[in-house]
Amino acid sequence: MKDKNELILAIETSCDETAAAVVQGGTKLLSNVVATQMDIHQKFGGVVPEVASRHHIEQITVVMEQALTEADVTMEDIDAVAVTEGPGLVGALLVGVNAAKALAYAHGKPVIGVHHIAGHIYANRLEQEFEFPLMSLVVSGGHTELIYMEEHGEYEIIGETRDDAAGEAYDKVAKALSLPYPGGPQIDRLAQEGKDTYNFPRSYLEEGSYDFSFSGLKTAVINKLHHLRQKGEEIDVENVATSFQESVIDVLVDKTYEAAMDYGVKQLIVAGGVSANKTLRARMDQRFADTDVELAIPPLYLCTDNAAMIGAAASVEYHRQNYASLNLNANPGLMM
């Protein structure tokens, strides 16, 4: 039997955060270091992959060292090294994967490859134990997925976006409104001030489908803005933000509710960068208040990309001894 209180050093470099963390037994966070590149990419209006990769290599040993120091442990104490193997930006993932392999090899420890989305779901386990069966809505700049889990480490994708991810639609609408990058939090902030006056479409797709589609909504908003500008009419930015956000959130909440009920789950986990959205949190709370489903949303610092969530997801694989070999590679299109 493996020690239940194993220590995992985890690394995450799939996009624009260089992160390392030490997690104990899959549930206890000992350190969680995130070096963000947000301000660097802000001037480009989005993440530039080559720039991100260059910054990861400059930060990687610094964040790993800080993670060990803050957890007050050494590599001798660590049982395994975990890393995001995908999906994500290939050049960015490569830095984390090669660092993980080199570190593990130097100290004779096993390496565990983790799916980034599994990490987002497992972020919640650092706060609250899972109750199976569970449903998870993962919403971020790259993902909008409904994942059903009957037990640890078993993921079934029951719904996903057919075009843009929810976070992607946020960023594109924000850009059309000339809001600074990243657009999601800006729209959420403006939406608190406005009203749903523009009545943008809500795409539910065909009956019984748990899939999402946000590109039609995004196009409707952009067309509307274009139309108003052409006619020289005033654009109420707050109302556009509210109207857009209401459309997104209505669909997210309705579909998630339907899936949770159909599958008879005990717990619903909302995860990923967009779960930082205040309105989404409040609306989920409301909808699940009178149900037997326990709603779990990790705190903000665990919703955005971090390595602690990778360490938490890796714990399950550690107990299965599901180790990667020395030829582990970055996999930008990794399936779940």
């Binding site: 080559e50 990769s53 290599i57 990687i60 040993t61 790993m64 060292e65 590599m75 290939v90 050049g91 490569l94 830095v95 090669n98 660092a99 392999k101 080199a102 570190l103 090899y105 130097a106 100290h107």
Partner: peptide, 19 residues
């Protein structure tokens, strides 16, 4: 090659730090 350089450098850098 940028990618090639980062693979070798990340590996060497991490091993040097780790050891």
């Amino acid at each position: 090659s940028y990618t090639g350089l980062r693979i070798g450098m990340t590996t060497a850098k991490t091993m040097a730090w780790a050891l």
